[in-house]
């Protein structure tokens, strides 16, 4: 029997936009198994990012059910969701979103610090993950001293350092050139393969879509198709 990590059923989410109501999610059902490499594709406004935010315990649906790692995300308080994110989730954002006053090592170690790991251990762990994403020697660099590709690698290392069940990536290659984009996706694939980490990536980048092992196509807040490749 497959080990189910995410189980979403009948997720609805609407936003008010002026006088109009926009249906960001309109009855989404999705199951993601542990160790999967899922790409959510679709045009802008199709609901990819909203669904990713639901999986990331950053947003709540208007109705529906959502369990992640066996826990009901919708029954959690804000504090419980924060703790859940810390223990179970990793994020890679489109704009890298590193903390700019911290260097690469400190950025990666930040989540470990929130988890309560002591300084020596978390810095050692951060250095290992930076080496794993090909950034050995970049530990002391601040975000503004690195290229976009390097920053995104740091973000991946940060997402991985806390040993999460799931890494959620929102348009991770959108700000990278094609070479860096391909390199990043290759890194994510390798980590998925070697570490067994589950990835759910929202993207309309053909390179990312080509790497998907499960491709979820979305349109107008609904899942159009789920293809296991």
């Amino acid at each position: 029997m497959a080990d189910i990590l995410i189980q979403a059923a009948a997720l609805h989410k609407s936003y008010a936009s002026g006088d109009a109501v926009v249906k960001a999610l309109d009855g989404v059902d999705l199951v993601v198994e542990r160790g999967a490499f899922v790409v959510l594709s679709g045009r802008s406004g199709s609901g990819k990012t909203t669904l990713l935010n639901m999986f990331g315990a950053l947003d709540r649906p208007d109705c529906g059910t959502l369990t992640l790692a066996g826990q009901d995300l919708l029954a959690m308080s804000a504090a419980e969701r924060a703790r859940f994110r810390l223990r179970h989730l990793g994020f890679v954002f489109q704009a890298y979103n590193l903390i700019r006053v911290l260097n690469a090592r400190e950025n990666v170690a930040y989540v470990l610090q929130l988890q309560g790991m002591d300084k020596k251990q978390r810095f050692a762990s951060a250095d290992r993950w930076l080496a794993a994403v090909g950034l050995a020697g970049f530990e002391q660099r601040r975000p503004d001293q690195m290229s976009g590709g390097q920053q995104q690698r740091v973000a991946v290392a940060r997402a991985l350092a806390a040993a999460p069940d799931l890494i959620l990536a929102d348009e991770p290659t959108a700000n990278l050139d094609s070479h860096n984009g391909e390199s990043l996706i290759a890194l994510m694939e390798r980590l998925n393969r070697e570490e067994g980490t589950t990835f759910v990536i929202a993207s309309h980048d053909p390179t990312v879509i080509a790497a998907a092992r499960t491709l979820v196509t979305m349109q107008d807040g609904r899942i159009e198709a789920v293809n296991h490749l």
Binding site: G56, L58, A78, A79, A82, R83, R85, L86, R87, L89, F91, F93, N97, I99, R100, Y110, V111, L114, Q115, R158, A162
Partner: peptide
Amino acid sequence: IHEFGVMMALGCGRMQ
């Protein structure tokens, strides 16, 4: 504010 949002996404609690 944006950075705070990122920190919260990473698991930083409101009280922290």
